[in-house]
């Protein structure tokens, strides 16, 4: 049963990520990103991390994908679907090369390492448990993360909300 779910959601995540990379329309890319995030959340559920699955759906699928779609809408889709790197075609082959090397190294290390599954999982992914640990043992990183979020929020507002005449536009 676990294999069925793992296979289904893993293939869904891979299909979503491939769709993000190859689709020429940026809105389609964002929707494929949504598929990938949802499938990853389901994989978290298979792994027993319920709270993370919830956070994944809320933050990634809810907030980030909507943000992407908004920005694609604001910037304009017609300027977005420029997929082919015509000026530097070698860059794509470099990417394929990195892909193959990474897969080879990762595959080798995965085959050579004998990871055993841990026994006796006592519902440690539940929201209650994660919350207790997060607020007791990891309070400082948690608060630092909130400071990061605040800084990002202020920075995003300052960057995006400034209304001034365009500077530095090249003379044409």
């Amino acid at each position: 049963m676990e294999w069925v779910f793992f296979g289904l959601f893993g293939v869904l995540a891979l299909v979503g990520s491939v769709g993000v990379v190859v689709s020429r329309n940026a809105v389609h890319s964002a929707l494929f990103l949504l598929v990938n995030f949802a499938a990853t959340a389901l994989l978290f559920l298979v792994l027993g991390a319920q709270f993370l699955a919830l956070a994944q759906v809320l933050v990634y699928a809810g907030a980030i994908v909507v943000l992407f779609i908004f920005v694609v809408m604001l910037v304009g889709n017609e300027t977005v679907d420029d997929f082919v790197a015509r000026e530097r075609p070698w860059l794509r082959w470099a990417a394929v090369g990195f892909f193959l090397v990474f897969i080879a190294v990762a595959g080798y290390s995965l085959v050579m390492s004998g990871w055993e599954a841990a026994k006796g999982l006592a519902d440690y992914g539940a929201v209650e448990r994660v919350g207790a640990v997060l607020y007791r043992e990891y309070l400082l990183p948690f608060e630092l993360a909130s400071v990061i979020l605040l800084a990002a929020m202020i920075g995003a507002i300052i960057l995006a909300a400034r209304t001034r005449p365009p500077l530095g536009r090249p003379e044409e």
Partner: peptide
């Protein structure tokens, strides 16, 4: 996870659009 990572990496290298 490794395959997802390299697909993302491929996207970073092959795309020319900043949002992508």
């Amino acid at each position: 996870a490794a395959i997802l990572f390299v697909i993302g990496f491929y996207g970073v290298l092959s795309r020319r659009n900043a949002i992508a």
